[in-house]
Write a protein that binds this DNA or RNA. Structure first.
Lengths: 348, 348
DNA sequence: TCCCTTTGAGAAAACCTTTTCCCAAGCCCA
DNA sequence: TGGGCTTGGGAAAAGGTTTTCTCAAAGGGA
């Protein structure tokens, strides 16, 4: 403010031409000097560099892009700007790209085909180097057709077109993590309360749940399908614990998401059952704000969405760079975040 | 896939030169034909249009931007990609701009000065038309200096530089809405449980709370400051209701956010107090997923963040268009979303 | 002294589109 | 028939940078 020593950026950005003129050379020489190309005396190069510095010269990306046929931008399409899932994905993508000098256009297409087309057209016009599609569900398509755009495209946490490259979470693996954790802690009657049958992940996780129980020789209780809500968690506890036989009651509940788990924990407490002493609970998603607000704090499966996004971003970049990549769906591992809702192992 | 009638986009995008060549005219004429400029026979114009259509020609935005000195992009800086608050703001901004053909660069600067500078430089290089800064707190600066960038800058839901244009929520107004709602419902002993003193909004809302009570001639109970958590809501209920005098107990609690409100509601229920019959509760933020999971669903103050974002986006555009605008902070009104945690008026 | 090579730097094309002139042909009117 | 106007369309510059050529001068060897 008070110091005028710092070169205030000109209203009209400084061009290479002005730098060259002031340094007494041609634009060609100036360009080469600043890019470390060409041959010239060290003195000339330094003089040009210093002039550029003094004028606050920054090369116009638009002109560079036009020439290089590469804009160093990518489009990020999502139908879930508000959402829990695509946000970490987007953040991971953005982080991976910013370090490479690539900027990200955020395009929220909702579930609106017209809006989707609008955004895709805008991206194409702006000559993005590639497009990443992400969404709120792994088993739903974005309302756009990206199959024949002529630029590299990657899908992250959304349903890909056939023949495309996609990154998704390994839901079955995540479910195994949870159930095996219960098993290691000595829990033997493990129930599963999850979301609606219309979600592919519900079946993937439920099947893994059954598989682990079968492998371990434990009784398989049929998964309880409902909604993704806290209220359903409450209700499910009634179904699980209102039975007659005492030995039949679960000593562990693996929940399809953290909200269900929250409902389950609250309902268990209302019944006078202790978590984790009487019943262990594991959630899914590791939604921090929910997982840390339950009493006790919730152990939960984390899908590593930021890492997934980072992976997707880096892969897109390598595609843009011309490197080949095998099409197909890559499942990235989940991890279990242990808090206090499962207790400690008997020997621990 | 099977239909080859649809013109598959060329690997190298079609240029105006190719369109012109195929239509047998110069590029100048082709440009004018497609833009509805210049004079030519209707037949020529139509032929060029049809050729462009057939080839799938789309003008290169980079070239246009270079010429027009306007990129039709803006940078959106935030330190809160995961967050509850900036997301609706960002969504509103993006919505407002996409219809005008303006794309948004998403820049997550975290609280990292280096990352902030990196992103700002990238935006400047890419010749964005303007920048919008948004964040997770209305009383904190982003870790970047945007004061002298040479391009229009708008602040939305974050602390502005002096002399800048900023849009924020009217927290005092929102608090008034809540307390006056209680008053209209006949509640007379209204408590306030809110977040830590380090937040400016805590004071703004608390002062408005006091003001309304004073205006109405109601007893002012000193606001209870704590954290933004559910646990604090629990604890605060103890402080409020563990006293001795029966007539002293509140019949309404205005909470600083929805999580506190959730804790308050749960604690009240555990004490055997009915919400809303014995005590009314109002939250702040209208975080749908929390407000609808409380029992009963929570009445809450909504800051209209999407609208705020939209306003910010449109204002930036008018600034870019060269229209003057008064610097200063514009407070946008909140609204009360009524659910079931306050009951109905006595006569209703 | 002459020729060849190296050195240092500039001219110009290219990227793609828009816009401002400019020009040739045709027409009208005197 | 000649001058002026309209019509239809093209040439060229502009926007900012990079890169490939080209070229003059200087230096070295014979």
């Amino acid at each position: 403010m008070s110091s005028d020593a710092a070169p205030a950026p000109a209203r009209q950005p400084v061009t290479l031409r002005e730098v060259a003129a002031l340094a007494g050379v041609s634009v060609a020489t100036a360009s080469k000097a600043l890019n470390g190309q060409g041959r010239m005396t060290a003195e000339t190069r330094e003089r040009i560099r210093e002039t550029a510095q003094r004028l606050g010269f920054r090369p116009n990306s638009l002109a560079q892009s036009l020439l290089r046929r590469r804009s160093f931008t990518v489009g990020l399409l999502t139908n879930d700007t508000y959402g829990r899932f695509s946000l970490p994905v987007m953040s991971g993508i953005s982080d991976a790209l910013v370090d490479k000098g690539v900027s990200v256009f955020l395009c929220n297409v909702e579930d609106d085909q017209r809006l989707g087309q609008l955004h895709v057209d805008a991206m194409l016009d702006k000559r993005v180097d590639g497009i990443i599609a992400t969404g709120k569900r792994i088993d739903r398509h974005l309302p756009v057709d990206l199959s024949n755009l002529g630029i590299p495209t990657i899908y992250a946490f959304t349903q890909p077109d056939p023949g495309a490259i996609a990154f998704v979470s390994d839901d079955a693996g995540g479910a195994r993590l949870a159930v095996e954790h219960f098993w290691r802690l000595g829990r033997r009657r493990i129930a599963h309360v999850t979301g609606p049958a219309s979600f592919a992940v519900v079946h993937a996780r439920a099947q893994a749940y059954r598989d682990v129980l079968t492998e371990k020789g434990l009784p398989v209780m049929e998964p309880l399908l409902g909604s993704w809500s806290e209220a359903w968690g409450h209700e499910a506890v009634n179904k699980l614990f209102d039975g007659d036989g005492e030995g039949e009651k679960p000593d562990a509940v693996f929940c399809g998401n953290d909200q269900i788990a929250r409902g389950v924990i609250d309902a268990l407490r209302e019944r006078g059952l202790d978590v984790p002493d009487d019943v262990g609970v594991i959630g899914f998603d590791n939604w921090q704000i929910v997982a840390e607000a339950t009493r006790p704090p919730l152990t939960s499966v984390d899908m590593n969405l930021a890492a997934l996004g980072r992976e997707a971003g880096l892969t897109l970049l390598s595609l843009v760079g011309g490197e080949p990549a095998e099409p197909g769906i890559r499942k990235l591992p989940c991890r279990l975040v242990v808090r206090q809702s499962c207790g400690r192992p008997p020997d621990g």
